[in-house]
Design a protein around this nucleic acid. Sequence first.
RNA 1: GCCCCUGUGGCGGAAUUGGUAGACGCGCCUGACUCAAAAUCAGGUGGUGGAAACAUCGUGCUGGUUCGAGUCCGGCCAGGGGCACCA
Length: 876
Amino acid sequence: MSTERYNAREAELRWQKVWDERGVFATRNDDPRPRYYVLEMFPYPSGRIHMGHVRNYAMGDVVARYKRARGFNVLHPMGWDAFGMPAENAAIERKIHPRAWTYDNIAAMRAQLKSMGLSLDWRREIATCDPSYYKHQQRMFLDFVRAGLVERKKSKVNWDPVDQTVLANEQVIDGRGWRSGALVEQRELTQWFFKITHFAQELLDALDRLERWPDKVRLMQKNWIGRSEGLLIRFELDPSTTPKGERELDIFTTRHDTLFGAKFMALSPDHPLATAAAEKNPALAKFIAECKRHGTAQELIDKAEKLGFDTGMKAIHPFDPDWKLPVYVANFVLMEYGTGAIFGCPAHDPRDLEFSNKYGLGNTPVVCPPGQDPAKFVITDVAYDGDGRLINSRFLDGMTIEQAKDEVARRLETTLHGNRPVAQRQVNFRLRDWGISRQRYWGCPIPIIHCEKCGAVPVPEQHLPVTLPDDVTFDRPGNPLDRHPSWKPVTCPACGGEARRETDTMDTFVDSSWYFVRFTDPWIAEAPTQREIADAWMPVDQYIGGIEHAILHLLYSRFFTRAMKVAGHVGLDEPFAGLFTQGMVVHETYQKADGSWAAPTEVKIEGADDHRRAALIATGEAVQIGPIEKMSKSKRNTVDPDDIISSYGADVARWFMLSDSPPDRDVNWTERGVQGAWRFAQRLWRLIGDCSEIAASAPAERPQAFGQSALDVRRAAHKALARVSDEIEKLHFNVCVAQIYELTNELSEAVNNAKQRTVTADLRWAIREAAEILVALFHPMMPHLAEECYAVLGHDTLVAQQEWPELEPDLLVEDTITLPVQVNGRKRADVTVARDADQQHVEAAVLALPLVQRALEGKRPKRVIVVPQRIVNIVA
RNA sequence: GCCCCUGUGGCGGAAUUGGUAGACGCGCCUGACUCAAAAUCAGGUGGUGGAAACAUCGUGCUGGUUCGAGUCCGGCCAGGGGCACCA
């Protein structure tokens, strides 16, 4: 038995079939046990799973199986984020219908996921592109319209003038459309928005209560929401310099303390005043048009050279009627933030300084850093945005920044101009409303009908879902819905007149903003949720996914859940009580002499350490081993999970994914690592086989007393049990793996010793106990092997349905402890004392140590620090 | 450009959250078994010096706080994630 090899392929299929036939992972909503909802971010059906999925789903499955063993009714579902651009790209490039492409991919990926042996309730599978799903999404859109959470307004898009289509930021490469190569323009479209800003304060405040979220994600969201307290200031304009005699310019600032350092005003190119000024100024109009040539991505706007155009208009400083400031139009001022206009203080803002230096506007430092001589403090090319005291600022001189802000606000609030205060304190958010309109076919149709007379009319609920027409073509540019002969024209539900459907579909982030609720009851046809069931399962106890979703997906889902609450579909605000963000899967890269990349399967590695060399298997040509990078098609450094599963089995793939690297960091996929995991699986199989032979004649009853060998085995098993339980709760799977290795090493030693002498009954019993604990511990990670081993140990039930072993805490307590002894913070010796020895005893024992005596050279120690149960430090 | 994270032996990493740096694994070295190889088993393995005991250096760099710093604070360097139409 013990020399036989474990046949993963055969065993895995067999156990998957057993789980399936017995419905082991089907979750009942009426199960009375406490509930636990574990969810991994559902995949986009690209066609094949990748190693990132394997890692993500292996982690979730460990949690699901562990919580099940802990007595919870576990919800662990899977679905498909099935709308999106790649389906349309496939349609354009390969003439496959997006629906067919998507469902083919889903079928392929479902089979792959099933081969991983995940403990999923497949009966709850959903695909967001299915009308039975998006029907409810359309209904909720209308609910949100009624609740005042939806708005139509203009916003900018990347427009490809050749393909006559809107481009995603990723489709804009160096300012050109990826397919057409045409220069991209900014274009304004009227679009649908969810008013996420309505919840800005709430979304910010609630972050503090998301205690089981990583701090970094909460911080990123906090910064993204970007609450700032500032001042809205009405600058008077010199009417002789403005078109149509405009008299005022509103700006928002958080640095009103620096008002005496102002050198210019700047308007966004989209600012109405800029537009008005451009009407009579062709050069300005040309400049504004030039600004719009850039894409809409924030990164590009920030990195672009700061450019401006002097409009000739003058603004008057609020504290000095004789102080006139030039008004520029500048490419770095955003219409979406504040009022779309700023005052520029070059000395204390890096962007303003770059701008000012370019146009020779000068700068006046008005905040002096501590310890600097105000008379000598000058700014050249690095703006100072730190703390300090006000200088060159008349009545503000000497104040702190906070005092100066207060003083400026107080004075301007109480100064009236035209019966209104010149300034008012204002809270501003960086967060913008969520634009959900997409000019694409493969998405959830927005259920609105446009009528000349009645405006935008909601589709009546009994007409939902508005389904996508199947008969579409992708042979021409533009949105197929827009040019469809019969889909678009409809009668107006309000007046019965001629009308047309909204041809925009929803952002796919909408689809993924509530799927987690739908899983609680995916069968109900009448409503998005079965309220009591949704409320019973939600929030998700443990959500697991990539860090790349830290902001958008998670923030949108938090908003959507609140909106669903307003509409009465759920009774909670926060969808995810616990969040875990896992790292990526990376692999080294192989580059050929001609610069092209070779796949890991094409390469043979020789040598070790610094002497590793790689060559193409086919030709023997040497290839260069490059840096370890995220697995990607472009670098060809991907490993196909199918290949791994068919050669090593799912358990080995899962085990390797969970071992070594901490789950929140990147994991480097290596062939050697997989082989190590494979050898370990075989070793476990042999070990459990040996254990079962020894255990076969073990007493059924627990012995009254245990000898030293038996006690050692039991201690090792229970220590591992305690550590693995702790670490699995914290999702530190790599530490669990290390503990399982340790227990395996210790149990192997006991078994090897047992082979060489007669084995007492108590040791047989202890070895059986340890073997069963070991199987239970690795079951969440290698479930198939665990079932196989469990059967070998003589069970006819499933380990998947077994309770977690019970810990005997007494076994973890040692009588004596060994403390490290430091002299001046440097370890010199160990001392072994009774576990409950008091400070004096420990101190005396330590000072008596020869090594300590020698280190002290006969002198008395200055201080002895005894940290109970930890360490002793002697200060000589 | 802005926001966030990470940096520990040849490699992946551990370190009870301020208390023995390098657990565990990979790799490598030595031995056992074998005609031989693989597999397996046993032992060793941070650098430098030393036969050894031991000494000394050591957690990206640099400065600080502390009896004690991988861990806390300041400044740098490098790599990665996000930046609102990729999902």
